[in-house]
């Protein structure tokens, strides 16, 4: 049961307008959320919902679908917290984004199952995820080019780029999340950025048979 306006016992200066919180602070908020505090839940959503959305949206081109998947992620988090199934103290973000990516993969599989075989460009498989519509219709050309470049990265590079720039995880958190040395993560990030720069400077020319119109 959630209690209305149950205090979370955080100092006011940590609750108002302070986007960055330490893991102990987050754990304290999570404990309050587990105890049924609606205020704590609103803090969790304020802190993470748009970062999760951006991560999902980077893989799913339809905003409404991305919102739906994001909602599923937080419903899963709420349910597991209520059941006491969250035991990764100090690694909430890693847990959260693992749930996020699992849900994205589920959605990609669902979309792939419902793909029209006569329209191969409606869904494109990439790194185990998929796009369910052409990338960002109506977006400016630079954005479209960047999205296509991100889509063309290999799965490891793409994940690091998205965890860093969409989910706003620190490199240290990414290293812990992927159970990979920090130096390796940094090297992969640099490599991914170089690939992106190369793709954007020299975009691949589509062959005449790739996009029949």
């Amino acid at each position: 049961m959630w209690a209305v306006n149950q205090p979370t016992h955080n100092p006011p200066d940590q609750d108002a307008g302070d986007a960055a919180r330490s893991e102990p602070q987050i754990d304290r908020i999570l404990r309050s959320a587990q105890g049924g505090s609606e205020d704590a839940w609103r803090q969790i959503l304020e802190q993470y919902s748009r970062r999760v959305y951006a991560m999902v949206r980077s893989r799913l081109s339809r905003p409404d679908l991305a919102e739906e998947v994001t909602q599923d992620v937080f419903v899963t988090v709420a349910t597991k917290l209520a059941e006491g199934a969250y035991s990764e103290r100090g690694r909430f973000e890693s847990w959260l984004f693992r749930i996020t990516m699992n849900r994205v993969r589920d959605e990609a599989r669902r979309l792939a199952r419902h793909a029209q075989p006569t329209d191969p460009f409606q869904i494109t498989e990439s790194a185990g995820t998929s796009h369910d519509a052409p990338a960002d219709e109506g977006a400016d050309p630079q954005t479209v080019a960047l999205r296509e470049a991100i889509d063309s990265l290999g799965p490891e590079d793409r994940l690091i780029v998205e965890l860093r720039h969409m989910a706003q995880m620190s490199f240290k958190q990414i290293a812990a999340h992927l159970d990979t040395p920090l130096g390796t993560i940094l090297a992969r990030h640099h490599r991914a950025l170089r690939k992106l720069r190369t793709i954007l400077e020299h975009p691949p020319t589509p062959s005449p048979t790739e996009h029949p119109s």
Partner: peptide, 9 residues
Amino acid sequence: EGERLRTEP
């Protein structure tokens, strides 16, 4: 791009 997506909802 990250900021664009985070402010999109």
